[in-house]
Design a protein around this nucleic acid. Structure first.
Lengths: 132, 132
DNA sequence: GATAGGCACTATCTTTTGTATAGTGTAGAT
DNA sequence: ATCTACACTATACAAAAGATAGTGCCTATC
């Protein structure tokens, strides 16, 4: 099955025709990290998510949620009321992924000082190279 | 320390002024995943990396490597010979991250069938909605 | 000896993606 | 009567990614 797209060695994200490459591409967005990270604690509404994720535009949030819904990571439930009420939650697949993504998010938070000092060092040596 | 940028609650990637948000943004690129994934097995040259990562342009590869170098995840060693020889390898920090990133890559490869079927289902219900 | 190719890029142009800003219609609060 | 919240949608603009071609140097081929 699917042998024509990524065989004979199985799925390999390094190959651009392999579907796993597209999956990796879909996941590599900061908004995906944050959306899934936010939903990990329970179902949320569009407005709640927007307030939690500083700087996201409604367009981007909707787009991210639709992609995640399409790919089976998020479930969208619409309540036919006025004003509209829509709730989002992770699917089982989404929860499975959420653990991994949250590790990356934690890593980002934990290693800020390391990266900051590396950047400062790079800046310094850059200046020296420019001056010397 | 750094209290002005992400306090009083510590680093939080959900806040766009928090430096960890920028770190997460830097990491969320498929080329970062693949570059670090490739370097995990040992030092490599630009050309080797380019051949391994199908579809990357030399510009994008150089750019990705420079960013990773600047942020202390990759070490760049230049040999002053002709033709030029440049080798890249992960730093300790890079290796630390590589384990996490590789889990996401594996996840992408493992869950292709799940995502594929979710997409097909979404497509089907989309068609029905358009027709009905 | 002209041609092709590898090396590690750089430069330019085009396309895609993300961001900013404003607007949709309904309903309750002020 | 105006303001806000809800969950978006639409348009215009800026930033990023991708495609294509070129740089100087050397080795190997025809």
């Amino acid at each position: 099955m699917y042998s024509d797209e990524c065989e004979p060695y199985g799925y390999d994200a390094f190959r651009r025709t392999c579907p796993s490459h597209a999956v990796l591409e879909m996941l590599s967005s900061k908004w995906v990290y944050l959306t899934i990270g936010a939903l990990r604690r329970g179902r949320m509404r569009h407005g709640e998510l927007a307030r939690k994720m500083e700087g996201i535009t409604p367009k981007m949030l909707t787009q991210t949620l639709r992609t995640l819904e399409r790919d089976g990571l998020v479930l969208r439930e619409i309540f036919p009321v006025i004003p509209p009420r829509v709730e989002y939650e992770l699917t089982a697949l989404g929860h499975d992924l959420a653990g991994l993504l949250d590790q990356i998010r934690s890593w980002s938070e934990m290693h800020v000082p390391d990266i900051r000092s590396a950047r400062l060092a790079a800046e310094e040596s850059g200046k020296q190279a420019a001056a010397g």
